[in-house]
């Protein structure tokens, strides 16, 4: 009998305690963020879309080699001896035309491994994460600043330069060469 009334008491008392708690929660500010209007605070070292500052890029290909999924493709063209490509912000001299620098974000795994080897700190993570596309090939980003014509021009220039050099070499080879003495071990 005591248990019977005890049950009734506990049932009602606990229901009222529970109702009190849920009622309080009606006035607790909601944790929902209205996403497109309000954006969540991102962590300091968040990893999102990459960006390449081409002014500083020396075309060293280290990021491409570090990439575990090979999503970075770099093509460089040697500059001609007379050309001045300027300097990077930390004083390195640029020697290569970067004629192609594409990153395929469909492949990218956002591991940030490409960021560390960069000698000029020109490739880094940004806070942009809204870049969905309907077509996959639109996710291939081209960072090279040169226009397609310029790129072709640089390649042609180099090819021409190489051809000239080759021709000079051939010319030099056809002429008799002075004999090169080989180093001989010294006798004691």
């Amino acid at each position: 009998m005591k248990e019977y009334f005890g049950n009734i008491y506990t049932a009602l008392a606990t229901i009222f305690i529970g109702m009190k708690i849920t009622f309080k929660h009606m006035f607790v500010p909601s944790v929902t963020i209205q996403y497109p209007e309000v954006k969540p605070q991102l962590p300091e070292r968040e990893r999102n879309r990459l960006y390449v500052n081409m002014d500083d890029c020396i075309g060293c290909d280290q990021c491409s080699r570090a990439c575990p999924v090979s999503c970075i493709e770099i093509e460089t063209t040697k500059s001609l001896p007379g050309e001045d490509l300027g300097k990077t912000s930390n004083g390195k001299k640029k020697a290569l035309w970067v004629t192609n620098f594409t990153i395929d974000f469909a492949k990218c795994c956002y591991c940030q491994l490409c960021v560390f080897p960069c000698p000029t700190e020109c490739i880094y993570m940004t806070d942009v994460y809204e870049f969905a596309e309907w077509e996959r090939n639109k996710l291939v980003y081209d960072f090279a600043t040169l226009t397609p014509e310029e790129r072709q021009e640089k390649r042609d220039n180099l090819a021409k330069f190489n051809a000239e050099k080759e021709a000079e070499k051939l010319k030099a080879a056809s002429e008799p060469k002075p004999e090169i003495k080989k180093d001989q071990p010294e006798e004691k």
Binding site: T22, F23, H25, M26, F27, V28, P29, S30, T32, Q34
Partner: peptide, 13 residues
Amino acid sequence: KVSAHMQDRLGPM
């Protein structure tokens, strides 16, 4: 709305 606010959500917005 009631269920959402009791769970600290917003419900249809």
